[in-house]
């Protein structure tokens, strides 16, 4: 009776709108957590949800060989998939300056402390996003422990591409801007449910 999506691409405007609505609540929860942690005002723009190919996703976030850190968390239970949060240097520095009182010229110079601070922040952002999501959609999601890497942006994005390569050639990029100290800082949050899970999310929300 209802159509099943075969790929992220198949989402129509209504379905994308719904994802955007949920993402907007998810990212505001993430911003609240970040704000509490940093004791600082954090505002966010309304996120855009984009379903993009690999090359486009890379170019939206940055340069293919650009060094970034990323935190990855695996979702399981009623929704299976991956959450990926990418820190570019500007956002990382705002966070680290507040948290450990240091700024860095490049990611190479970061020590273990800075690196694990970023991993933790990435994890907090992802968890608060997912928590808001589960409450809203009414699904149970279990999260794995976070895993981080310091690597080329392009290489990091091949991970979800390969993980779901048999299902789709697209990524779902939730692009919101965090506004701190009057500066706009772009986040790099990717929510990547597998196709079955995407279908069940949209079904639960009554749009499919």
């Amino acid at each position: 009776m209802n159509k099943k999506l075969k790929s992220y691409d198949d989402m129509n405007l209504l379905e994308l709108d719904v994802m955007k609505e949920i993402s907007s609540i998810g990212t505001s929860h993430a911003a609240t957590s970040l704000s509490k942690l940093l004791q600082k005002e954090v505002r966010i723009s309304i996120p855009e949800v984009n379903v993009l190919g690999y090359d486009e996703t890379v170019s939206r976030i940055g340069e293919i060989e650009e060094l970034v850190t990323a935190t990855l968390v695996q979702m399981s239970n009623e929704v299976n998939g991956l959450m990926l949060f990418i820190f570019k240097l500007d956002l990382a520095n705002v966070v680290l300056e507040k948290l450990i009182g240091k700024k860095y010229d490049s990611f190479d110079q970061m020590d273990e402390l800075a690196y694990s601070a970023l991993e933790e922040i990435g994890n907090i952002i992802i968890c608060s996003y997912v928590n808001a999501f589960t409450q809203l959609v009414g699904v149970e999601i279990d999260l794995s422990v976070p895993s981080s890497t310091l690597n080329m942006l392009g290489g990091i994005l091949t991970v979800p591409m390969a993980e779901y390569g048999y299902e789709s050639d697209k990524l779902m990029y939730i692009n919101a801007e965090f506004i701190m100290d009057g500066r706009k800082l772009s986040d790099g949050l990717l929510m990547l449910p597998d196709i079955n899970s995407l279908n069940s999310i949209l079904e639960k929300l009554g749009v499919l």
């Binding site: 695996q74 794995s144 890497t149 990091i156």
Partner: peptide, 16 residues
């Protein structure tokens, strides 16, 4: 053929 992420307790992940 790198392993970009290591998830503890899930050795299958990222073996691609």
């Amino acid at each position: 053929g790198a392993k970009m992420f290591d998830i503890k307790g899930n050795t299958d992940f990222g073996n691609i």
